[in-house]
């Protein structure tokens, strides 16, 4: 399997996700510069976390218009899997690859903490190593992670099983207290309708090594390798 990690100016989790990918794939991903309008054929494109363009104007808005994104959109259209984490999720919604928008956290403060996630479906490239309904722990670290979509949009996501993860408590219950940022219906991550694009706020790459306090994220990368090799 080959993967690419896009580097925007201000990306700061590009190296972290590259480490997690290399560990799962056995070889390093290709790092793709945002100004490049083409890059080699890969089986997975990752948009990493960070503050691309400083989050100036609006989170993800400038990156959505980077040269490289035209190519990412083209490949997504052809079914190449795309994973956007944190700022990468914000870029995906801004570029129209995923519905909805990410807004400032309800508390108005940056939040960095372990978050419990309920896996809404194990039936996807990204979640095949998880059971539907399983509770996993990832790390949230964001200022603009409050997912918003209108009621009709939310119902559509639910009906088409496009919700990948919801914030949950210790016992796996999706409760208002477990919601770290005010996201609609505790949504932490969503798929496109074909389930080939996943955007999520919490960081699986920061929970892919026991030294970091957990390994729940590893299964996502290992599952991708299994599915795409």
């Amino acid at each position: 399997m080959k993967a690419a990690v896009v580097v925007f100016p201000g990306s700061n989790c590009d190296r972290d996700v590259a480490v997690a990918l290399e560990r799962a794939m056995g070889r390093p991903p290709v790092m793709v510069w945002h100004k490049d309008s083409d890059f080699e054929d890969v089986d997975l494109v990752v948009l990493p976390g960070g503050f691309s363009y400083g989050d100036y104007l609006r989170v993800g808005a400038i990156s959505a218009h980077a040269n490289v994104m035209r190519e990412v959109k083209r490949r997504a259209g052809k079914g190449v899997p795309v994973l956007g984490i944190c700022n990468g999720f914000q870029v995906l919604t801004e570029s129209g690859l995923l519905p909805g928008a990410l807004m400032r956290n309800k508390s108005l403060r940056f939040v960095c903490k372990d978050v419990g996630l309920k896996v809404e479906t194990g039936q996807s490239l990204f979640t095949s190593r998880y059971e539907t309904g399983q509770r996993v722990t990832f790390m949230a670290a964001h200022h603009d992670g409050s997912y918003f979509i209108d009621d009709a949009g939310r119902r559509q996501l639910e009906d088409r099983e496009q919700i990948a993860f919801r914030y949950c408590d210790e016992r796996g219950q999706v409760t208002p207290e477990a919601n770290p940022n005010g996201s609609v219906a505790n949504i932490a991550g969503i798929f496109n309708s074909e389930k080939t694009v996943l955007g999520m706020m919490p960081h699986p790459e920061r929970m892919a090594d026991p030294v970091l306090g957990g390994e729940d994220g590893r299964a996502m990368f290992e599952g991708l390798v299994e599915a795409l090799s």
Partner: peptide, 16 residues
């Protein structure tokens, strides 16, 4: 205080 700081970016934080 510290939940407003990203203390795990760079994915090498062994003690928070």
């Amino acid at each position: 205080v510290w939940e407003q700081y990203d203390y795990t970016v760079m994915a090498d934080t062994a003690q928070r």
